[in-house]
């Protein structure tokens, strides 16, 4: 019953889930949801640019996502209202990306594949890129974990302990850009934020420490990938959105369990 393409899709999804879950936890803890959105939406511009210049899509997406994330980081704390700024940047970069794609007349591209993902078309080469990126992100996070957590709690506390909060912010920004780039193929730029936020939020009620929350979030994300792909396979639904739907259902159960526990 299991075809090769389905196995590849499953592996690709697991790779992205593994990297997105811990980064998603930081996005939730630091209230960076819109920041994740802006970075993800900027990636479509990166896709268009790399197709225009004949570069690998991954490279262009990482570069532009990183550029966007750095722009937002450097603009924050300079008197701009953050939610307005991010709203402007997120949607205008998406719009510029879509317009840029329309100029590529000699390249036939399936826009939907980049907006909503095309996980069932993952090749072995894609798998290499996805797992390489994912392991890179996980390695980066494990290495900087203690420093990142301290900076998330309070930047001044980190300073007093001899850490540089700006450097940790940069690490997080880089990791986020990498996750966005590897997740495009799986869920597309429009739904990446969901893959970051929903598993982390679903894991929260069951976790007593940050590490357990990150681990649980990864498990939730993997379960969502498996369930979403299953539904997609048997009912012919779009795979990326099905994965996000499965994660949302898990989140709903988690919230329900929390309110039952709090009421008891």
């Amino acid at each position: 019953m299991f075809d090769d393409f389905l196995l590849r899709a499953l592996l690709a999804g697991f790779g992205v889930a593994l990297a997105a879950a811990p980064i998603g936890c930081f996005v939730v803890w630091r209230r960076m949801a819109y920041f994740g959105d802006a970075t993800a939406h900027a990636a479509i511009l990166g896709v268009a640019l790399s197709l225009a210049f004949g570069l690998p899509v991954f490279t262009g997406a990482v570069a532009v996502a990183l550029l966007m994330a750095l722009t937002v980081s450097s603009l924050s704390g300079r008197g701009y209202s953050m939610d307005t700024l991010l709203g402007v940047l997120a949607h205008s970069s998406l719009a510029f990306g879509l317009v840029a794609v329309s100029f590529l007349q000699d390249v036939r591209i399936d826009l939907m594949a980049y907006l909503f993902g095309d996980i069932l078309a993952v090749t072995t080469g894609d798998l290499g890129v996805i797992w390489g990126g994912a392991l890179g992100v996980v390695g980066l996070l494990v290495w900087r974990w203690q420093a990142l957590l301290t900076t998330t709690l309070n930047p001044d506390l980190a300073c007093a302990s001899g850490l540089d909060p700006r450097r940790e912010q940069l690490v997080l920004t880089l990791a986020l850009a990498l996750v966005v780039a590897v997740a495009i193929k799986v869920v597309g730029v429009l739904l990446i934020a969901a893959l970051l936020l929903v598993p982390a939020a679903a894991a929260r009620p069951f976790a007593a420490t940050p590490e357990r929350m990150a681990l649980l979030a990864a498990l939730v994300a993997m379960a969502a990938v498996a369930a979403g792909l299953g539904v997609s396979f048997y009912h012919d639904t779009p795979a990326g959105p099905s994965i996000v739907c499965a994660a949302a259902v898990l989140f709903a159960f988690s919230s329900l369990w929390r309110s039952v526990r709090n009421a008891a």
Binding site: W29, L149, L153, N154, S161, P210, M213
Partner: peptide, 25 residues
């Protein structure tokens, strides 16, 4: 330097035990 900040707002989405907090960084 042992620094005690004026206020430390911990986001409610961040689960953190006292023991874990003291092991940072």
């Amino acid at each position: 330097i042992g620094y005690v900040p004026q206020k430390l707002a911990i986001d409610p989405t961040l689960p953190l035990t006292v023991g874990r907090f003291l092991s940072l960084p």
